[in-house]
């Protein structure tokens, strides 16, 4: 991993990532713990698109799904009671929405390629909403 890639990641962490996390916390009404495996997200050579694909792959579906659940107090309460941590990684080079989300013991694990099928935001939002609703 060269300096150029590390700079791109740092810029994302200090800019878009901070804003997205803050938006998510505001949406659900509490601060959720994030654990992002940045090294796994960087394990490809498409650093020129990371600034858009990270958002599209991981955060936009998360925002969409959480928005639909947290639309009322009942949903916010359910999230607060059951969702304690969100893990983001690209461990298995998965690009299918159906296999992206796992929920266990209050931890939501998002495992998806950090660049493939980035535009399939709606598909991932639906899959995540389903997983969350079944586990809250």
């Amino acid at each position: 991993m060269g300096l150029a890639e590390r700079r791109i990641i740092k810029e994302f962490q200090e800019g878009a990532y901070k804003n997205l996390v803050s938006e998510i916390n505001q949406l659900i009404g509490f601060n959720i713990e994030f654990d992002v495996d940045w090294n796994s997200l960087m394990s490809n050579e498409y650093s020129d698109i990371w600034d858009t694909t990270f958002s599209k792959v991981y955060f936009q579906p998360l925002l969409g799904a959480l928005k639909s659940i947290a639309e009322d107090d009942m949903g916010k309460e359910a999230l607060k009671d059951s969702l304690h941590k969100i893990v983001i990684k690209d461990e298995s080079d998965n690009s299918s929405a159906r296999n992206t989300y796992k929920f266990e013991n209050g931890v939501l694990v998002i495992d998806h390629s950090s660049y493939m099928n980035a535009d399939f935001v709606e598909e991932r939002t639906g899959a995540l909403t389903e997983v969350l609703e079944k586990n809250l």
Partner: peptide, 10 residues
Amino acid sequence: DKSGKFQVRK
């Protein structure tokens, strides 16, 4: 099918 408490409350 497995469901969650949230789905039932909903």
